[in-house]
Design a binder for these strands. Sequence first.
DNA 1: CCTGGAACCTGGTAGC
DNA 2: TGCTACCAGGTTCCAG
Length: 260
Amino acid sequence: MAAHLVGRRVTDAWTDGLRLREPLSRTAVRSLVGERIEAARRRAKFLLFPLTSGRTLLVHLGMTGNLVFRTGQNAEPTAHDHVLLDLDQGPPLVYTDPRRFGLFKVLTATGLARSKWLRNLGVEPLSDDFDGNFLHTACEGRSRPIKNLLLDGHIVVGVGNIYASEALFGARIRPTTPAGRISRPRMVRLVAEIKAVLQRSIDHGGTTINDYLGSGEGGYFQQELTVYGRAGEGCLVCDKPITNKVLSGRSTFYCTTCQH
DNA sequence: CCTGGAACCTGGTAGC
DNA sequence: TGCTACCAGGTTCCAG
């Protein structure tokens, strides 16, 4: 996005107006015409595109969303294209999302600062701010299962349901363990595993959920998954069957032998 | 303050 | 074959 979008001016804008995670404003999308995209940034899983007017385009891909240029493999429109931006140079940019869990919003500077989506976000998982001390302190006195806490974006962002199970397996910590009862050294190990899992996934192009594949190439990290989605199959360490337990509404995978 | 569950949405799949 | 019920994910909101 930084390479192909920054510096481009929006010459026309279309939306089907279907509601995403929040209603998608036709007026807001139309107001993008004439704007130039000044930068491409990220915070947590939110994409931020500052515009010439001082406003910012905020995009979240939800679980199935995609931002693609309408060219090559993505040349054909799909039934799930929700926003299309014509640019002064190069192919149009399309926001496509079959399950409409994403966000596409245009915010003023103050709107951005006050946005509920960006307020109260935790630390970036790959930053130096996220270390064993930080996580240990954040978990002090907390009784929630450690896995639930890892999914809580108010503490650390970017750790989704799949990577939480993977990192806890790597650290040999049972997902149900009350967060406040995990020692500092084990938190150091856990943080290292989270960073390693995320970095390896980025290197592999991400994880494509089950058999769902968006346009373009899917991620290849699912080939690397050690516990997620492997209920009943043998643990890669001890060969005992992997357990699947629902923890606050989310499937959680772990080995009852290796993880304590 | 803390916690867990519901809600949002739809394509794929398991089960009848 | 065709229907229905359920599930997946990230995030906020609400009730206990």
